[in-house]
Amino acid sequence: MDLFSRSWTALRTAVAELPDEDFAKPSGCSGWLVRDLACHLVIDAQDVLITLVTPAETPPNRDAVTYWEVTGTPPTGEDPLDALTVRLAAAYGEPWMLKFHLDDVGSAAGRAAVLADPGAWVGTKDIVITTGDYLSAYVMEWTLHHLDLIAHLPDVPGPPAEALAEARGMLEKIAGAPFPASFSDTDALLVGTGRRAPTEDERVALGELAVPFVLG
């Protein structure tokens, strides 16, 4: 839960400190500008708040790793929900409005996470999971989206090192094998989730892991 807070705080701080012109630049999410990604983070924060106050009566059937649905198709930005996010982001008009809303809802999600009982059962997306595992899964969410945020913004600070290491560990459990030691945590996450195509040398080193594990 501490790592959830640190990764979420780092991501929100990075967005809050962006100059207005950066919101019109592309993000690492196909079809999304930085403003669209920021809008998605508002929705993510709302999802966290909703989930933390949605108790479940049946035992958990997922954990922080099995929470993720794995597909072999990277998003194109053409999904109806992705397109809705773009329209919502445009409706904000000015970057300061997005910053304000993300800070407002995002801070609330952060406080709720600190106050939550890690052993409590909660329901989300038709699954049951402990609060602790749910928040651990979101370390992956925040870390990947932080990498998406800085994909074309090289001067913006990236995710905390411990969050990158944790997310890599989770992705390796999903993949069922470790990524080559020659891969940095960032490269393992970018290549492993299809955010960046591997070089030829990386493809050889990856072997069967060269197929990206797209998470949803």
Rank of each mutant, 00 (worst) to 15 (best):
L164I: 07
I174T: 03
T76G: 13
H145C: 06
D104W: 10
L115V: 15
A167W: 13
M140D: 00
A163C: 06
S184V: 03
D20W: 03
A38N: 07
R111F: 08
I50R: 12
E69H: 09
F23Q: 06
F213W: 08
P160F: 09
W32R: 08
P95M: 04
L215T: 14
I129R: 05
D79S: 05
M170K: 10
P59E: 13
G176A: 06
R87E: 15
T9D: 14
G106V: 14
G93F: 13
P160Q: 06
D82M: 11
P157T: 04
S7W: 00
L84Q: 08
T9S: 07
D126F: 10
V204H: 05
P80C: 02
S7R: 01
A177N: 07
T73R: 14
K25M: 11
E162F: 06
V105K: 03
D47P: 03
E94R: 09
E21K: 01
H152K: 01
D20N: 07
T186P: 00
G176L: 07
L98P: 02
L18G: 09
A108M: 09
L98I: 13
P118H: 12
T124G: 02
I129W: 02
G216M: 07
V214S: 01
D79L: 02
P26F: 05
A197N: 12
A24E: 09
L11S: 12
L11Y: 13
L209C: 07
C29I: 08
T143K: 02
R111V: 09
P55D: 06
D126S: 10
S7D: 04
V42K: 10
A116K: 11
P80L: 06
E202N: 14
W68R: 04
L88M: 07
V156H: 04
E202L: 14
F179Q: 00
A161K: 05
P26A: 05
R62H: 05
P180H: 03
P198M: 09
A167T: 15
D79Q: 06
D63I: 14
D2L: 10
G31Y: 00
T66N: 09
R35E: 11
S27L: 08
Y67F: 15
V156W: 02
A16I: 04
E208D: 10
L215A: 14
D36T: 07
E21S: 10
G123D: 08
